[in-house]
């Protein structure tokens, strides 16, 4: 499995790791948007998760506690957004951006005492002999637990949205909140829960960065990952498996371009470094022009405020 000096198996294994934080955040945001809410605050929730997870893991000595803390912190941040947009009817775009600004500041404030500290290590899963299977072993059985968690999240969200009653209610709320309300569904409650789920996922994605991917805390360390996650949801046309595809495509091109550079390839580097963004756009254009338009449509009530009259 070698192309030139590139080992495809190694590439796939590392793109899975690189894509995991954005995949987690994207899958959470996908649920939020399926419920008809656009939360642009992913970056702010991710970095809050990153700092909370790090701080709790360092203080308690347990990465698992850190992860749980990050989930809760992300959900709480999202709750601010939920109250603003669902209870106080504030504009979603502006509230999301405000959340990002607040999250960046808040994380920096909390993280002041945690710069330059090494967090406790997260153990890798041990699959025993499975990890020695050629090709598959390296791709599938040599990762940390959260890579598998992210895959389970995709499968779980897909199953939940398409096969369960509560998933259908959520989609109904997102498609047309007035009809959903008329049918007796609690639009506001569904949406706030979805928003908190999105925050929890983003928080976990952030903690993956600060506890496993990089293991360190530095201010602004998410460096735009939340924005990429947002773009992926659109790329995925609000479908979980396509979010996985998008995250791995984006992560894959990122890893590939770094590998091409590292291989000493004579190719203009500035174009290589732009390629993840350009190819993502290109693939979406191809997908959106070849498919039926209906399949691409955003949830009908996306971004609109809902107020039950009377």
């Amino acid at each position: 499995m070698e192309i030139g000096s590139l080992n495809v198996v190694v590439l796939i294994a590392s793109l899975m790791v690189a894509a995991t934080p954005i995949l987690m955040a994207a899958i959470g945001e996908l649920v939020v948007e399926k419920a008809g809410v656009l939360n642009l605050g992913v970056e702010g929730m991710m970095i809050t998760g990153a700092v909370s997870g790090f701080a709790i893991a360092v203080t308690t000595g347990s990465p698992v506690m850190g992860m749980l803390g990050a989930i809760i912190a992300g959900a709480l941040m999202a709750l601010i957004f939920g109250i603003l947009t669902q209870v106080l009817m504030a504009n979603q775009v502006a509230s999301g951006l405000a959340l990002t600004l607040f999250g960046l500041g808040f994380s920096a404030l909390v993280g002041q005492g945690f710069v330059g500290i090494v967090p406790p290590r997260t153990a890798k899963l041990d699959f025993g002999p499975l990890s020695d299977i050629p090709v598959l072993g390296q791709i599938l059985f040599r990762h940390d637990a959260l890579v598998y968690v992210s895959l389970l999240m995709v499968a779980g969200v897909w199953y939940w949205l398409t096969r369960t009653r509560s998933g259908r209610i959520l989609r109904a709320v997102g498609e047309n909140h007035d009809s959903a309300h008329a049918l007796g569904y609690k639009v506001r409650r569904v949406r706030i829960l979805a928003i908190m789920f999105g925050g929890a996922c983003a928080g976990l994605g952030g903690a993956y960065l600060s506890l496993i991917r990089v293991p360190q805390w530095t201010e602004g360390m998410t460096a735009g990952a939340g924005w990429i996650a947002l773009a992926l949801v659109v790329f995925a046309s609000w479908r979980p498996w396509r979010a996985l595809l998008g995250a791995y495509l984006f992560g894959g091109i990122m890893v590939l371009q770094l590998n091409l550079q590292a291989a000493g390839l004579r190719f203009p580097v500035e174009y290589l470094s732009m390629s993840p963004y350009l190819i993502t756009i290109l693939v979406l254009v191809i997908m959106s022009s070849s498919r039926a338009r209906a399949s691409l449509a955003a949830p009908g009530s996306l971004g609109q405020s809902f107020h039950a009259a009377g």
């Binding site: 607040f102 500041g105 808040f106 404030l109």
Partner: peptide
Amino acid sequence: AAAIQVFQG
């Protein structure tokens, strides 16, 4: 600076 950012938020 972080406190100012929180304040703006």
